[in-house]
Design a binder for these strands. Structure first.
Lengths: 310, 310
DNA sequence: GGGTTCATTTTGTCCTGGACAAATCGTTGA
DNA sequence: TCAACGATTTGTCCAGGACAAAATGAACCC
C-alpha cells in the first residue's frame, strides 16, 4: 500500500526521521530546522544521505519536548546534556506530590506494575474498586496512581511494557464497571472524545466512570476524532455536552486552538467541557468553555449544568 | 508554544495544508507531490503564497484515500470526478459478502451503528453475549459483524464517528466479560499485542475473549509494542506463547519482516502465533510460526499446544 | 509599582524542485 | 502456474529560503 514505508525503523535501532517524529511529536520540519539552526540533533546519514538518529539523541529530544510543554524554549535547552534536562524535569515535579506522600496502596500497586504481575494488579484494583465504589475509586485511587506511574515512567523506573500493561488492566476494570452501570436515557447526554493526535484515552474513561453513576448517559468516541466529526456527531446525537480530554503531552497551544475552533462550530446550546493538564489555568483564553480542574470538578460541572437547565 | 499554528484552518472554510493532512491522512509531502505530478489538488494561494484548499477538493481527496485503502492507485483516480469516485466506492461491495447473506441480527446491529444509538447497541450486543456465551458470541456474531462494519465503512455508509462508536462499545463489552472470567494461574501463559504502526486492538480482545474461558492466562500489552519490548516482556514474564494480531490495513511485507525478526530473537521454547488478514496464507514464509486462520483456529492452536507440552 | 505599547528576537511551518528507493505492473521464460 | 526481471509508479526525504505568529524586552504613561 505504502510504496515506501520508513526502512526498518526501530527494528534494529536505526531511527529514521519519521520514526523520531512519531516518538517525539516534533515534526520533520522542526527536526531539520533545529539541526540547521542549533546544530542539534546532528544525526548520522545512511548511504542515501538520509538522517539516522541515535537512541541517545531521541532521549534528549524527548526530554526537550517535555520541558517545552512546560513553557521552556528550545534555545534554552538545546545546549544542555541529557542529565541536566532530567534535573530540570525532576525539579519541576510538583512538590505537592513527593514520594513520601505516596500511600501504602500506591507503592504496593506500583510494585505490581514494575514486576509486571498483571493478574494480581487487576484483582488488587478490583478489590479497591469494590471497597470504595466507582467514583471514589477513580478519584482517590486511580488519579494519584496514574500520576505516580507517569512520574515513574519519566524517571525510567518503568518501561513501555509496564505502562502498557497498567493501562490495559485499568481499562479492563473501568470498562467492565461502566458497562455494568450504564443507563440509556439519562440526562445530560455527554459526548466524550479526544482531538486528533491525542492518543491517551484513560482520562476519558475516568470521566465516564465518574459520570455514569450519576445517571448521565455517556457516549465515548474513543481517541482521535476529527473536529468535523465531533461537530456532526454532537448535533446528530442531540448531545447536551461535549467533553474533551488532554494529556500532559499535548501541546497547550494546539489544544486551545482546537478547542476554540470546535466551540465556534458548535451550536450555542451544547456545552463544551475540557480537562487535562494541557488546559489547566487557561480559563481566560477559553471564553464560553468549562475548564475542568480535576475529577471532583466534573461533578461540580454536572451540578451546575443541571441547575442552569431547569 | 508553537509560534505558528496553521492560520485559522477550517474555521471559516479556509483549509490549510496541515488541516487537509489531518482530515485525509495524506501527508503534506504527498499533497504537494500530487499537485506537481497530476495537477490535483490545485488549491488557491493566500497572500503569502500558501495553499488554500476548497471543501470540494477535500471531498475528492477523502474518497481517493478510501479507494486507495482498497488497493487502487492514485493515477487511476485523479482524473475522475467526485461522483465517479463515489460510484466506485458503492460498487466495491465484495460479492462474497453481499447484503443478502447478512443475518437479521447483523442488519439490525448495523443500523444501530449507522444511527449512532450507542446505548441500544451495547445492550443488544450484551443480550446476544448472554444468550450465546462468550466464545460463540465472539466467533459467530462479532467476527462477521466486524467484517460488515468494515465494508460499510469502505463504502462510505458509516463515518468515522460510527466506527469509533462501534469499537468503543464492543471494547466495553468484551473487557467487562474478560475481566469477569480471568484466571490468574492458568496455562499456557499468553502474551498478546500488536507491532508498532498497528493501531487496531479489537482483534486482540477477541482472541483474549476466546482464550480466557479455556483457563488460559492472557496478558495484553495493548497496541504498538516495540519489538525489543515484546522480547524482554516475553522472557521476563515466562510466557509460553506470544500472539500478534494484524489488521487488513497493515502491509503484508512489513508484517512478515517484523514477525521473522521477532521470532529470531525469541527463546525457542516460546511459541509465536500470528493472525489477521495481513498474514493469511503466508505460512510458507513463516517457518516455526503458527499462523492462525480464524477465531476457531485459535482453539485448535491451543489444543495442539496443550497436546505437545505434556 | 503596574499596566500598555511597540520594536526585536525566537521559532515552527510552508514553499520549491530535485532525488531516491520501495512497491507494483507487465513481460518473459521455465 | 510460478519465478525472475526491467519499467513505471509513488511516497518520503533533502536543502535552504521565506514568512508570520508568539514570546521577549524596552520604553512609556498612569
Amino acid at each position: 500500500m505504502n510504496p515506501t514505508t520508513p526502512k526498518l525503523d526501530s527494528a534494529n535501532g536505526a531511527l529514521s526521521i519519521a520514526a523520531v517524529e512519531r516518538d517525539t511529536g516534533l515534526s520533520k520540519d522542526t527536526l531539520r530546522v533545529w539541526e540547521r539552526r542549533y546544530g542539534f540533533p546532528n544525526p548520522q546519514r545512511d548511504a542515501g544521505g538520509e538522517r539516522i538518529y541515535s537512541a541517545e539523541q531521541l532521549e534528549k529530544l524527548r526530554r526537550m519536548r517535555r520541558l517545552m510543554d512546560q513553557g521552556r524554549r528550545p534555545s534554552q535547552l538545546v545546549g544542555l546534556t541529557v542529565a541536566q534536562l532530567q534535573e530540570l524535569l525532576d525539579a519541576h515535579t510538583p512538590c505537592a506530590h513527593d514520594s513520601s506522600r505516596e500511600t501504602t496502596h500506591e507503592t504496593a500497586l506500583l510494585n505490581l506494575v514494575r514486576l509486571q504481575r498483571s493478574a494480581e494488579l487487576y484483582s488488587a484494583l478490583q478489590q479497591l474498586l469494590l471497597k470504595q465504589g466507582l467514583q471514589r475509586f477513580v478519584a482517590d485511587t486511580l488519579a494519584p496512581l496514574n500520576e505516580t506511574v507517569g512520574q515513574a515512567w519519566l524517571r525510567g523506573e518503568i518501561d513501555v511494557t509496564g505502562e502498557h500493561l497498567y493501562t490495559e488492566q485499568v481499562q479492563n476494570l473501568l470498562r467492565g464497571a461502566i458497562g455494568a452501570s450504564a443507563t440509556a436515557h439519562g440526562r445530560p447526554r455527554v459526548l466524550l472524545t479526544t482531538l486528533p493526535e491525542e492518543l491517551h484515552g484513560l482520562g476519558l474513561l475516568m470521566v465516564e466512570a465518574t459520570l455514569v453513576p450519576e445517571g448521565v448517559s455517556c457516549v465515548s468516541l474513543g481517541t482521535q476524532t476529527p473536529l468535523a466529526d465531533i461537530r456532526t456527531a454532537a448535533a446528530a446525537g442531540r448531545f447536551d455536552v461535549v467533553g474533551l480530554s488532554f494529556s500532559a503531552a499535548y501541546p497547550s497551544r494546539q489544544a486551545i486552538e482546537g478547542i476554540l475552533e470546535l466551540k465556534s462550530g458548535l451550536p450555542a446550546d451544547i456545552a463544551l467541557w475540557v480537562g487535562g493538564s494541557a488546559v489547566q489555568g487557561r480559563t481566560g483564553k477559553l471564553p464560553g468553555v468549562r475548564v475542568i480542574s480535576d475529577l471532583a470538578d466534573v461533578l461540580t460541572a454536572l451540578e451546575q449544568w443541571r441547575d442552569s437547565s431547569t
